[in-house]
C-alpha cells in the first residue's frame, strides 16, 4: 500500500472529557479543547435550531410521551432538551378529566389547581399553551430533531479530535 498522508500522522487520541462536555452543552467540548470559534459556531447552530424549533411550534414540539421516537433524536441536544421536556410534562400538562391521562390543553381549557385536571374555563380564557398542529408542529419537531442529530456529529468530533480533518491531511 502506498503511504498516504494519514499514515504519517498519529491516530487522533480519544478525548472523553471533551465528548462528555459536548453532550452536556453543544460546543462545550470544543471550548474545552481551546477551539473557541468552532465552539461558538457549533453552539450557535445547534441551539439556534433547537430554540428555533421551539419558537416555530411552541414547547409542544418536545414531548417524550406523545412523540417518543422524535424525542430520541431531540434528546441528543443534551440536558437542554431534557429540561424542556420536564417543563412541558410538569407545568403545561394536566390530567384529562375522563381518562385521567396527562395531556395538553384543548382551546378554552384551564388547569384546575385543586384537582390537577383540565376544566373548561370562563369565556375568553386561554390555556397555558396552544398545541401546535399540522405543518408548524412537524417543522418545529424537525428543527429540534435535526439539532440533536447534528450534536451527535459534534460530540463525535469533540471526542475524537480532528479525526476527519487529519485524515484529509488538512491539519491547521
Amino acid at each position: 500500500m502506498n503511504p498516504t498522508t494519514h499514515d504519517h500522522l498519529e491516530t487522533p487520541p480519544l478525548d472523553p472529557i471533551a465528548g462528555i462536555l459536548a453532550i452536556i452543552l453543544p460546543g462545550a467540548g470544543h471550548l474545552y479543547q481551546g477551539q473557541l470559534k468552532r465552539a461558538l459556531l457549533v453552539a450557535g447552530g445547534i441551539l439556534g435550531l433547537f430554540f428555533g424549533g421551539l419558537l416555530i411550534g411552541g414547547i409542544d414540539v418536545i414531548d417524550s410521551r406523545q412523540d417518543r421516537l422524535w424525542f430520541m433524536g431531540q434528546v441528543l441536544v443534551g440536558p437542554v432538551a431534557l429540561a424542556t421536556d420536564f417543563v412541558h410534562q410538569n407545568h403545561f400538562k394536566a390530567l384529562d378529566p375522563v381518562t385521567g391521562v396527562p395531556r395538553s390543553p384543548k382551546p378554552g381549557e384551564i388547569k384546575d389547581p385543586s384537582t390537577g385536571e383540565w376544566v373548561v374555563g370562563p369565556a375568553g380564557s386561554r390555556p397555558p399553551i396552544s398545541k401546535s398542529l399540522a405543518k408548524m408542529n412537524e417543522i418545529g419537531i424537525l428543527y429540534c430533531t435535526i439539532a440533536g442529530m447534528l450534536n451527535l456529529i459534534v460530540v463525535i468530533d469533540a471526542a475524537f479530535p480532528s479525526a476527519g480533518r487529519v485524515r484529509r491531511g488538512r491539519v491547521s
Partner: peptide
C-alpha cells in the same frame, strides 16, 4: 415558545433557516 407561529401558508420558507443552521454547524466541524 408557548404558541406556534402562524406561518401555515408560508411554511416552506422555514426550509431556508433550517438549511442555514445545518450548514453552519456541519461546516464548523
Amino acid at each position: 415558545f408557548l404558541d406556534p407561529i402562524d406561518l401555515h401558508r408560508q411554511w416552506f420558507l422555514l426550509l431556508i433557516p433550517l438549511a442555514f443552521g445545518i450548514s453552519l454547524t456541519y461546516r464548523a466541524v
